[in-house]
Amino acid sequence: MDLALRRDPVRHARNTVRRHLAAVGLTADGGPVVKELIDAAALIAGELVSNACRHTLGPEAMRLTWDSTCLVLDIDDPSPLAPVLVPEDLRGERGGFGLQIVESLAEWWCVVPRVEGKTVRVCIGHPQLRVPLGPPSRYRSGSPSCPVMSRTPA
């Protein structure tokens, strides 16, 4: 989905995630577990698009795929710089919470460099379909969904 020329790309991303998941049969009527997945995916999409709007020239595209272990959300933007988790003591009125939210809801996230920019890739797990993913980690090298890491954990 192209996000580059959207008037309100954050709202559009959240709504698109909800519509896409509903189209494949994942709705809030599916119970609390499915509702949790939908809410997490919409919130993460909004946070990543917001970060791209704030820290780059804006988001370019969003993709959703299911890789049998998780819902994979990709957000492309034109900047080669990886997002940075803001230390807790520097978060405040002006922000700094977005990537912390992503990290708390996602199984893992990573950055895949592109020729002109990057893709921020997030795995949003479904608790009832969870396959062991290894120890919790922001970055998990060797993941079939994220073969290239732009940096290693601190």
Rank of each mutant, 00 (worst) to 15 (best):
D67I: 05
A40N: 14
D74A: 09
V24P: 09
C53A: 13
R14M: 14
I75T: 01
A23L: 07
L26T: 09
T27P: 13
G46P: 00
A41L: 10
C53T: 13
R14D: 12
W66S: 14
N51L: 06
A82N: 03
K35D: 15
V84I: 10
S68C: 06
C53S: 14
P78T: 09
G31S: 14
E60C: 06
T27D: 12
L37W: 04
L48S: 11
S68D: 15
P32K: 08
E47Q: 12
P80C: 02
P32T: 07
A45N: 06
D67P: 03
V33D: 15
C70N: 07
G58V: 04
L81K: 09
T56E: 03
S68V: 08
H12D: 15
S79L: 01
G30I: 08
H12S: 12
H55R: 05
D74Y: 08
S50L: 10
L26R: 13
A52V: 04
A13Q: 09
A40Y: 03
V34G: 13
A40D: 15
A28K: 13
D67L: 04
I44P: 06
L48D: 10
V24K: 10
A45I: 00
T27L: 11
G58M: 04
A61E: 13
A42N: 04
D29A: 15
T16R: 10
S68K: 03
L48V: 05
V72E: 04
N51R: 01
A23M: 09
P80A: 06
C70A: 15
D39M: 02
V49Y: 05
L71Y: 03
D74E: 14
D67K: 02
R14K: 13
L21Y: 09
N51V: 01
I44Y: 08
T65C: 03
L48N: 09
A23F: 03
N51E: 00
P32V: 03
L71F: 07
I38W: 05
I44L: 11
R18Q: 15
L26V: 11
I44H: 07
R18Y: 02
I75V: 14
H55S: 01
L64N: 07
L57W: 00
R19N: 09
A82I: 01
R19T: 13
R18L: 09
G30T: 12
V33E: 15
G31E: 13
I75D: 09
G30H: 12
R19P: 01
N15R: 07
E47R: 01
C53G: 11
V17K: 02
V24Y: 12
A23N: 11
L37N: 08
L81D: 13
V72A: 01
A28D: 15
V33F: 12
V84C: 07
A28T: 15
L48M: 14
V17G: 07
W66P: 02
P83T: 04
D39I: 06
I38G: 08
E36C: 05
T27W: 12
A40V: 02
V34A: 15
I75A: 05
G46V: 00
A13I: 10
P78Q: 10
V17P: 06
V17F: 07
V72F: 00
H12Q: 12
V49A: 08
M62V: 03
H12K: 05
A23I: 11
I38K: 07
A52L: 09
V84M: 10
L73S: 05
A45R: 00
P80W: 02
T56Y: 01
G31M: 14
